[in-house]
Each structure stands twice: as structure tokens, then as C-alpha cells.
Computed example of a mutant assay.
Amino acid sequence: MSTHPHSHGKHGLVVLDMAGTTVADGGLVEQAFTAAAERLGEDPATMIDHVRATMGESKISVFRHLFGGDESRAQQANTAFEDAYGELVAAGRIAPVPGAAEAVAELKDQGRTVVLTTGFARPTQDAILDALGWRGLVGLTLCPADAGGRGRPYPDMVLAAFLRTGAVDDVRQVVVAGDTSYDMLSGVRSGAGIVAGVLTGAHGEAALKEHGATDVLPSVAGLPSLIRRYEERGA
């Protein structure tokens, strides 16, 4: 027997990525990365391909890879990146993905719990939420450090959302949506029943499907009706 009869068979927990999924960042990650590389006296051109390929991964992991395990250099680079990104956010260079806030409101109206996750550190995530006026949009936001530090492509943030909210009884009742291969992998590895890719960010349909997307949508605005279709089919 389900301890929460209302959530039985219902996709009651929706875990959404931020930049590229609910937040239109218009290339800010790459701009901030370039600024950080220049501040550190590194050549951004040699690194940018790796940054594009690993979009969605925890940023500190990206820097650890780039600096070959030099932890202090990786931390220094991560701080420079977060500072540069924060400056761009503070300068008003960020906006919601059209329809994203409305989609979150609709998901909540449907009785679902919505959690926002990011590969950024907490200060940057908070700066984005503040810039958008989204502090009160959802009850829980998670960054990699909130879930053990590994970030994506590990399933840790999705599972932390599952554990902390208690919104559903079964990981198969979780919905994950994101714009990167790593978002899809983290969803698949968590056991989520719906892993939706969106085309408003870093990666295209082929990459999203290759990494486990159950569905690919033009944007997160289509997510509430996708979930309803699953439930109507009894999936």
C-alpha cells in the first residue's frame, strides 16, 4: 500500500535544470568561462570545446579535468568563473525561458512538487534566482554541494530531491527535464520515469536521445501537458 494514496501512480516530483532549461542564459556560461580563463592567464580557446561538451556538469568537475587534478588551480578557476558569471547576472544579462515560470505554476497547480537544480555553486544559483525574482518560485533548489558534491551526470541531485521532498513513493514517479546530455544521464541513472530533453539550451535532439531522453520537447513550456499525457495513458 502507498503511504501517500494521492501520489499513487502520479508523477508528483518534477526536477528541473536551470540554465538552458528554465533560464535563458544566452551563452553566458561561455562568456563567463572566457573571462575566467583570461583572469587566470589561460587561453580560453583551448578549453572552450571541453566546456561545450560538458555543459551541465558540475563546474568544479570541469575545472578539475582541465587542470589535471591541480585542486588549488581548479578551485581558483571555479571561483573566477562564478565571479564572472555573477557579474553578468547582476548586469541583467539573464532572463527566464519563455513560458518557464508559467510551466512551473501549472505543474504546482497539478499538485506536483517542483525542484530546481544547477551545476553552479550556491552563491551563483542564488544570484540567478534573485535576478529573476524566483526566490519563492519553488520550495527547494539544489546545487551539487547540497547533494554530496558530485553534481551531474551523477543522479545525486535528483535523488536528493526525491529524499528531501518525500513527494513521491517511487523514483519512477519522478520527472527530470534538462537541456544537456548530462541532465539526461542524471535522470536515467536516478530511475526517473520521464526524462525530458528540451531544445532551448546546449544540446540537440540526437545528443539528448542518445543519453536517455524519453521525450524531447521544444521547451519546458510543453512539460505539464507531456506529463498529463503519460498519466492519461496510465504510464
Rank of each mutant, 00 (worst) to 15 (best):
T79Y: 04
A192L: 03
R152S: 06
A100L: 11
A95V: 14
Q76D: 03
K209P: 09
G99D: 00
G151V: 00
T180N: 06
Q173G: 03
F63K: 07
S190I: 08
G99L: 00
G99C: 02
V114D: 01
D70S: 09
A196G: 05
H11D: 10
V195T: 12
D156I: 12
M157V: 01
V174E: 03
A105M: 07
Y230C: 06
A147H: 00
A53W: 05
L16A: 04
E205A: 13
L142G: 08
G20F: 11
K10Q: 11
T113S: 00
T22C: 10
V89Q: 13
A91Q: 03
G56R: 02
M18T: 09
V195D: 06
S225G: 03
H203P: 10
V198A: 10
T22W: 11
D17M: 10
L208Q: 05
E82L: 15
V97Q: 08
G149Q: 09
V89P: 15
V195M: 04
R122C: 08
A121E: 13
I94Q: 06
A207T: 13
K10W: 05
G193N: 10
G148W: 04
S219M: 10
H8E: 06
V198T: 04
F162C: 15
R164S: 11
A147K: 02
I94D: 06
M184D: 00
A207P: 10
G119A: 12
D179T: 11
R164E: 11
A160V: 05
A95S: 05
G111L: 14
T124N: 13
H50Y: 08
P144C: 02
A105Y: 13
D126H: 05
P155H: 02
A100H: 11
A202R: 13
S219A: 12
F63R: 07
A167P: 15
G99K: 00
P224F: 15
M55A: 12
G133R: 11
R64F: 15
A32T: 14
D169Y: 11
D130I: 06
M47K: 02
D146E: 01
T214I: 14
H65G: 11
G56M: 02
R164G: 12
R135S: 02
A161I: 01
V195W: 11
N78E: 07
T3D: 09
M47F: 09
